[in-house]
Simulated assay, not measured.
Amino acid sequence: MPRGSKAKYTPEQKRKAAHIEDSYEHKGVPAAEAEARAWATVNKQSGGGEKAGGSGRRKAPMKKAQDRSDSAKRAAASREGHPRSSRVSLGTQTKESLMKEARAKDIPGRSSMRKAELIEALKKAG
């Protein structure tokens, strides 16, 4: 026998559970077992009854895909040669990020420079 109140379920969920329960009973499953299976099926398909504070839950697949794409675009843009914020000093950056910045500023001889030399060249380039 299913536990708990079914008051939080939508009318559609209740109709679906009743239909599934009737189908199981028609196949010869005992009433209590049919009811339990019906509600288990409804819960699996829809995640249970109405939830409080439904915002942010269950985005439409297209919206979720669009948000994921937007996030990837923002991440890619932040990796490109955008100017770093004033809080990040040259000394805390990796050599690879310094090399990208030197490439963006077209500093000659950058490929053979060490990290300290890259920092100096970037400071001079301004």
Results as ranks from 00 to 15, higher is better:
E25W: 04
V42E: 00
A40C: 10
E50I: 08
K51A: 09
G47P: 00
A18L: 13
S23T: 12
H26A: 12
R37H: 08
A36F: 09
P30T: 05
W39Q: 00
E33N: 09
K14N: 05
R37N: 11
A32C: 05
K51F: 04
A18K: 10
S46R: 04
A18H: 08
K27H: 12
A38D: 01
A36L: 15
G28W: 00
G56C: 02
K44H: 13
W39G: 03
E35T: 09
V42F: 05
K27G: 06
Y24I: 00
A38F: 00
P30I: 04
Q13S: 06
N43H: 13
R37Y: 09
A38Q: 01
Y24F: 13
E35K: 10
R15K: 15
I20V: 15
R37C: 02
E21W: 01
K51L: 08
S46K: 03
A52L: 10
H19L: 10
Q13T: 02
V42T: 04
G49L: 03
Q13P: 02
A40G: 15
V42S: 00
K14L: 15
G47N: 05
K51I: 08
A36T: 06
V42R: 00
A34G: 02
A34L: 05
G53T: 04
K16I: 06
H26C: 06
K51H: 13
A38T: 02
N43K: 14
K51Y: 07
S46H: 15
G48L: 05
E35P: 00
I20W: 06
T41R: 13
G28K: 03
N43L: 06
H19M: 09
E25A: 05
V29Q: 00
E50R: 15
G49D: 03
G56Y: 04
E12K: 07
R57F: 11
D22M: 06
H26W: 10
K14I: 15
Q13L: 06
A34M: 01
E21S: 12
T41E: 13
H19Y: 10
T41D: 12
Q13H: 03
P30Y: 00
D22T: 08
A36K: 14
E21I: 02
P30K: 08
G53W: 14
R15H: 11
G49F: 03
A34W: 01
Q13E: 07
K16E: 14
A36D: 06
K16L: 13
K14C: 05
K44N: 13
G54K: 07
A36G: 04
Q13I: 04
S23Q: 12
E12W: 05
Q45R: 15
D22I: 03
